[in-house]
Amino acid sequence: MSASSSTHSEVREIPVSERGPAPRNVVVSFGFWLFLLSDIVIFAALFAAFAVLSHETAGGPSGNDLFDRNRVLLETAILLASSFTCGLMSLAVEQRKLIPAAAWGAVTFLLGATFVGMELFEFHGMIESGARPDRSAFLSAFFTLVGTHGLHVSAGLFWLLVMFAQIATLGFRPMVLRRLRCFSLFWHALDIVWIGVFTIVYLGAH
């Protein structure tokens, strides 16, 4: 153990109680991770509501009538690609490369915005055809769950814009780097929630 990692060997031998506070990086990531988990608990409640209400269509349209799997696959691909470019952005940020970071960030933003646009288009089409949130319990649960995810993605887009402004004005100072790290955690976590959404809501439609 100590032979394999020479840089950490002296740290390892100090008892935990004497190591002092963890590096700020670690603490910030942990705190934000706790926030993400509590956010996921919110989604869990919405998923539970959807699972309970998904059969209660009150004579209205069911999921099978409304959902287009090809569009969902495209949405999934777009969000997954944005997750990937977000990862490439955080790699560029770690190496303090401004141009690649800005470029990957811009791609991430465009993909995220496309995703939100497609979702709004879908909602608009559903509401036009009479499948409004007040039509049935199933549709209420659907709009709440998918809409909450869409709101999160929109908030992430706004956050990304703010980070662009902060990189432009403040540069890669540690504070900005931590915020960028939290942003990428947030963005990847939203992709994880979307896995649940497309599996339960769209592929599990009946």
Partner: peptide, 9 residues
């Protein structure tokens, strides 16, 4: 400080 979220492309 040690890097927290290391990653590679």
């Amino acid at each position: 400080a040690p890097r927290v979220a290391g990653g590679s492309w």
